[in-house]
Design a protein around this nucleic acid. Sequence first.
DNA 1: GTATCTGCAAAACATTTGCAATTCT
DNA 2: AGAATTGCAAATGTTTTGCAGATAC
Lengths: 135, 135
Amino acid sequence: MYDVGEFLKTNGIKPSYQRIKIYEFLMNNKEHPTVENIYHALNGKIPTLSKTTVYNTLKIFIDKGIAMAITIDDNEVRFDAHMDLHGHFKCEHCHQIIDFNVNFEGALGDALEGFEVLEQQMFLYGICKTCREES
Amino acid sequence: MYDVGEFLKTNGIKPSYQRIKIYEFLMNNKEHPTVENIYHALNGKIPTLSKTTVYNTLKIFIDKGIAMAITIDDNEVRFDAHMDLHGHFKCEHCHQIIDFNVNFEGALGDALEGFEVLEQQMFLYGICKTCREES
DNA sequence: GTATCTGCAAAACATTTGCAATTCT
DNA sequence: AGAATTGCAAATGTTTTGCAGATAC
């Protein structure tokens, strides 16, 4: 695996131990973890870790463009270091969040002519294939 | 204007004074108000109104399918009684939320084959036409 | 040695819950 | 009267802030 510390430096982020571990966690856990998820997962390895640091670090990652916030739930924010343009599907049955490909140009036509679009999110909700086949 | 009380009844909602006023407010203010917005706007006419009632009422509207929650901001939920399928653009400069037409089929192709899609949201962020022309 | 980063504790918000008072039929 | 609705006050849960101690260059 490549050097996360170097990657953070390249993006203008000082690579502290906590920041490296949090970024590695996001890389290895693409299930769109919450702050709570990240905190609990790393608290074993870094007993002194605080949620404040997790919040601070995620804010830095987002500001520097190496992670994004996913507000597909209305009560907690999830995070994703997978920066390719893609949509998120939330299964109301198994509560998983599944990535899918989106053609944003095909969706828009000439709506938003003259607008400058900086970020694009598509959230779908329903029942995923696996849950449908089980029932 | 048509009879809001009748409309609520048709959708299985008992038309109390508060519910009628809240629904009328959503109809007349399509700028995707927050609970705070609704509460403050109506508190003048209904001095005894509580935020609890606003929350309860909006939950009923959503359950009955006559309004939807818009989680385009990650710190507060907005509400929309405009139930046609459409996307939301948030201008980072003037902070307005603007509706636009979306072709969801065109965006998906054969991604999500076998999934049951019950709700669709598209959120774009950037600078709106008006703000761009001003600068 | 000076900047930055971390993390505790407290504060700030949005939202939910319990329950008693009110309203409606 | 009886059932539903309202609204206050308290609780909950997430995120932010202030600040003192630790760490890094």
